[in-house]
Amino acid sequence: MTDYPQSLPQKSKKPRPHGIFYWALVREFASTGLLVSSILLGIVVFTQLIRLLGESVSGMLAVDGVLAMLGFTSLNYLPVLLSISLFLSVLLTLSRSYRDSEMVVWFTSGIGLTRWIRPVLGYAIPVTLLIALLSLVLSPWALSKADEFKRRLDSRDDVSAATPGVFRESKQADRVFFLEDVDSQKKRVGNIFVQSTQNGKEGTMVAKEGYQETAPNGDRFLVMLNGTRYEGIPGRADFRIVEFERYAMRIEPAELREDLPHLQAFSTLYLLQNPTAWNLSELEWRIGLPLSALILSLLAIPLSYVNPRAGRSLNLIAAMVIYMFYNNMISVTNSWVARGKISPSAGLLGIHLLMFGVMLVLFYHRSSASSWRRLKR
């Protein structure tokens, strides 16, 4: 009689618990956050572009510096924009789950409110690390480069800084330039208009073309060709009209300014090495941005509750009020630290511990209310 080997019972692989729940939420958080951050960044870029173009038209900023300044300014705003988009993405996603009754399904499946912390942290921690990198490293670097770039633009001579088609006053306030065409590579200009004051007399020069010339001693001149000079006031006896083939006008050299950078442009390492009151307040702001972003992402879980019988926008209004209070209190504590009213440790930890406590209270309130409703049913 042949004995057949009996097959041993195999252990069935259990699916990872709530894996679908986790990854579905993370994907929805990411897609909503990408959409919100793109909209906010587009608004900031558009408003800053209008401001920079206005400065360029008025002669305060050169045309070739608009795009560079726009990039530096946008990079400076990114930490705040990412913090707002992180908060809104969690809030809007969970609010939609309440409105579409998905929360009821998850709650009846045994997933309580605290089980939402893990997927929210899985999405929020990488974004918070990016905010910390931007706040502590990249934003100060962008502001320092923006200050340096603007100083170089302001330190250019009058002809190099002139914008084609725009009247521009010299830095000595004794000449007004108008250049219709500027070729910086060939150092030639076309259709020149210059109004200047020399020896108490006003003069106006008009030339069809000209070029820049450098003397052996280093002095630079704007040489105008085939032009006309008008001296004095028309109608008076001393009014003269002089035609010239070549007229050289000296370009006053501009000094490179050595202005101190703004406090926001100092590196984080410099702030740590020089712990003054103002430096500590700036350091507190940079560290507070990622901390507040992480706390707000968790705070959005209980704030996303939507009561079907009440207005659907009440939770959004309450969330915006809490966000504005949190952000304003961070600014207030920063100013208190800078003025020496409170210690840096109290300014850094006080408001964040307060909001962390508010988050715990809201979690307890929502969890207790949900458990009571389930028990009552």
Rank of each mutant, 00 (worst) to 15 (best):
M1A: 12
P5M: 05
P5V: 07
P15E: 13
P15R: 09
R16E: 13
P17G: 10
H18F: 15
H18S: 10
F21M: 11
Y22F: 15
W23Q: 09
A24L: 09
E28S: 14
T32P: 15
I43A: 14
F46K: 02
Q48N: 13
L49C: 14
S58T: 04
V66K: 08
L67R: 06
L70A: 09
L70V: 04
G71E: 04
L75D: 02
N76F: 09
S83H: 03
L86K: 03
S95Y: 01
R99L: 12
M103Y: 06
M103G: 06
I111C: 00
L113E: 10
G122F: 02
P126E: 06
L130F: 09
L133F: 11
L133H: 06
V137S: 15
V137Q: 14
S139R: 01
D147T: 12
E148H: 08
F149V: 02
R152F: 11
R152N: 11
L153V: 14
D154Y: 13
E169T: 14
S170C: 03
A173G: 14
A173E: 13
A173I: 05
F178H: 11
E180H: 13
D183P: 08
S184E: 13
S184C: 00
Q185R: 13
Q185N: 12
Q185P: 03
K187R: 15
V189H: 09
G190N: 11
F193G: 04
F193T: 04
Q195P: 07
N199I: 03
A207N: 06
E209Y: 05
Y211G: 04
Q212H: 03
P216Y: 08
R220W: 03
V223S: 04
R229K: 08
Y230C: 01
E231T: 09
P234I: 00
G235P: 09
A237V: 07
D238C: 05
R246S: 14
R250W: 01
I251V: 14
A254N: 04
A254Q: 09
H262F: 05
L263F: 06
Q264N: 09
A265P: 01
T268Y: 06
Y270E: 15
Q273L: 07
W278M: 07
P290M: 00
P290G: 00
S292H: 05
A293L: 03
L294N: 00
I295V: 06
S297N: 02
L299A: 08
L299R: 03
V306T: 07
L314D: 10
N315M: 07
I317W: 14
A318E: 10
F325S: 14
Y326V: 04
I330Q: 11
T333N: 15
A338W: 12
K341T: 08
A346Y: 00
L348W: 00
I351K: 06
H352P: 04
L354Q: 05
G357F: 07
V358I: 13
V358E: 01
Y364E: 05
Y364T: 00
S370K: 03
W372R: 15
W372D: 11
R373S: 08
